[in-house]
């Protein structure tokens, strides 16, 4: 336990770390004190007092800055493990007189930081922070850490602001290879309406909705009716195709196995994203969880969420059944 943690009741979320400047300052003050003591020169005592005064002032002002700062983060809609994401940081300074100067914002446990512009007294500023989530999964939102070094940079004082809620990190994106599909044994085709696949015949016209492809706009009708009209196409027949991920792995507690399983999940997620964005109807099977084929961003999100939360199981778990072709399953095999 660090000494300042005893003050948690008074300064919640507060942490402190000495910088190199502090050690230089310590050496400076020691030498100055020795010189003052040795010579009895009061001008040196003045310099020493002012140096120590500056030290105290630096501590008080940086503490004041932190005590009056509040911040919150807004995470992007899609966060992919291992990919940079842009987090919006909003800082509010409730101090009546002093601006918050040189505030470094970062997310606890994550790389990346941003130096916020000066926050005026009783004002707000925004900044964007580039960071990376290392792993897929559902996590509590990382705390926003505000670090202050100024005015004299003797200490890094940090305020940890917990952010409520959770964040879902999708699997890592990799270069998607050729998909390995598995069909249901009973076979069959699915008929559906989907805006994402541009093939097929025009079924009817309707008003533009968010998410529609701009290439489907019927310009003549749009001009005629004075509102944006798009062509709805109909796929006559679509195959019911699934991406199948077998979560059974040998030695699920082994870190290397986990890493390889993550790679597998990343591959499935990348393939699923590529296909759905191309307008394919893709379903997903992970163990007992089955997501039927569908289209659109919402469906993609559903697939990715399932993949983000996929956990490996042991080989004793029941095998997948009902899918044609074992070779079409994404599966880890035991390595010698």
């Amino acid at each position: 336990m660090r000494w300042y943690e005893a003050l948690e009741w008074r300064f919640p979320g507060f942490s402190l770390a000495a910088t190199r400047g502090f050690w230089w300052f310590l050496a400076w003050v020691s030498l100055l004190g020795l010189a003052a003591l040795n010579t009895g020169n009061n001008a040196l005592y003045m310099l020493l007092s002012l140096s120590l005064g500056a030290f105290v002032a630096s501590g008080v002002l940086s503490r004041h800055t932190l005590a009056h700062l509040r911040g919150e983060i807004a995470l992007p809609g899609e966060i992919w493990a291992g990919s940079s994401c842009r987090v919006a940081v909003r800082l509010r300074n409730s101090s009546r007189w002093l601006p918050a100067w040189g505030v470094l914002c970062r997310l606890e446990g994550l790389p990346g930081a941003v130096l916020a512009p000066p926050v005026p007294p009783r004002g707000e500023v925004g900044a964007f922070l580039l960071t990376k989530f290392p792993r897929r999964g559902l996590f509590p939102k990382p705390a926003l850490v505000l670090e202050v070094r100024l005015p004299l940079g003797f200490f890094v004082k940090a305020l940890h602001l917990p952010q409520g809620g959770q964040v879902l990190v999708f699997p890592r994106l990799v270069a998607a290879g050729a998909p390995r599909f598995a069909g249901l044994e009973e076979g069959g085709l699915v008929a559906g309406v989907g805006p994402l696949r541009r093939g097929g015949e025009v079924e009817w016209l309707r008003e533009f909705r968010a998410g529609d492809d701009l290439r489907d706009i019927h310009w003549k009708q749009t001009a005629r009716q004075g509102r944006v009209i798009v062509m709805e196409r109909r796929e006559r027949e679509r195959p019911r195709r699934y991406l199948v991920l077998d979560p059974r792995v040998p030695r699920p507690e082994d870190p290397e196995t986990l890493r390889r399983f993550d790679d597998l999940v990343a591959e499935v997620a990348s393939v699923a994203r590529k296909l759905v964005q191309a307008g394919e109807a893709v379903g997903l099977v992970i163990g007992a969880q089955v997501i039927p084929p569908a289209w659109g961003p919402e469906h993609l999100r559903r697939l990715l969420a399932a993949l983000a939360l996929a956990e490996p199981t042991s080989l004793e778990a029941p095998a997948l059944s009902g899918f044609a072709g074992e070779r079409a399953t994404y599966r880890l095999v035991a390595t010698p």
């Binding site: 002012l50 500056a54 105290v56 002002l61 007189w97 601006p99 990346g112 930081a113 941003v114 130096l115």
Partner: peptide, 29 residues
């Protein structure tokens, strides 16, 4: 940190507050 710095500048208020506070502490010291 490999990030962009805000435009360099000096806050007059922070400057004055630091000097004032430092001198106030320095006198009894």
């Amino acid at each position: 940190r490999g990030t962009t710095a805000p435009p360099p500048g000096v806050s007059f208020r922070v400057l004055v507050a630091t000097v004032l506070l430092a001198s106030l502490v320095a006198v009894p010291l």
